[in-house]
Computed example of a mutant assay.
Amino acid sequence: MKINELSANIDQKIAELEQQLENLHAQRAQTSDPASQQKIIADITALNKIKLKLLKSRDIAWRAHQLLRDQEDQRSDDRKRLLGLALCIFSAVGAVTLIGIYFWSGLF
């Protein structure tokens, strides 16, 4: 699953939780029975904890994605650096060869 899909799924679950929280707050306002209010408060607390965990999960997923992308960028930079070094060495060897041929052939 791609990070954008995962994030969208988590956002959808958070929106559903927020709707449930709104419903529970409305029920709590309409209920006068202390036992029912305590149950609703416990449900609200549980939903808030789930919401917080979902937010943390989304944040962790994005951080992991960023770390992986940074790692891939670093590998790409390392390959470019190695290719550049190889080209420099190849050019130096070619230049030395040409200079050697020039001097060895007695053209100077």
Rank of each mutant, 00 (worst) to 15 (best):
A64E: 09
D43A: 12
R69Q: 13
A42R: 14
A42K: 14
D33C: 02
A86R: 08
S91W: 05
Q66F: 09
Q19E: 11
M1T: 07
L17N: 03
A35I: 14
A26R: 10
S32K: 04
K13G: 04
K49I: 00
I50Y: 01
A15K: 07
M1I: 09
D11L: 01
L83N: 05
L54K: 02
A92P: 01
R28D: 00
Q27M: 12
L82T: 03
I44G: 07
Q38N: 13
I99G: 07
L82G: 02
D77Q: 11
D73G: 03
L17E: 00
L21R: 03
E16H: 04
I99A: 12
L6C: 11
T45Q: 14
L55Q: 15
A8P: 03
L68Y: 05
Q74E: 13
R79G: 04
A95C: 03
R79C: 04
K39H: 07
K53M: 11
K80A: 14
S57A: 15
M1S: 12
E18W: 00
A35V: 12
W62I: 13
A95N: 01
I50G: 01
Q66M: 07
C88L: 13
L47S: 06
I40Y: 13
N48G: 06
D59P: 07
W104R: 04
L47A: 05
K2M: 07
A8H: 10
I41A: 10
E72L: 13
S36K: 13
I3L: 09
T31Q: 09
Q19V: 04
A86S: 08
F108S: 09
C88A: 09
A92K: 03
R81W: 01
L6E: 15
S7N: 09
F90Q: 06
L17G: 00
S57G: 13
R75W: 11
Q30F: 05
I40N: 07
G84A: 05
D78I: 10
I89E: 02
N48C: 05
W104F: 09
I101D: 04
I101P: 03
A26H: 13
A26Q: 15
W104A: 03
A8N: 06
E72F: 08
I99R: 06
I50F: 00
F108G: 05
A64K: 08
L21F: 04
D11V: 09
C88S: 05
L17D: 01
A61G: 03
Q27H: 11
A86T: 08
K51R: 15
K13C: 03
M1H: 11
S91E: 00
I41E: 15
I41W: 01
R79Y: 08
L98R: 00
L67A: 11
R81Q: 06
E72V: 06
S91V: 14
T31R: 05
H65D: 12
K2L: 10
R69G: 07
G94K: 09
E22A: 12
A95F: 12
R69T: 12
L6I: 15
K39R: 10
N48T: 10
A86D: 08
Q66W: 02
C88R: 01
N4A: 12
Q37D: 04
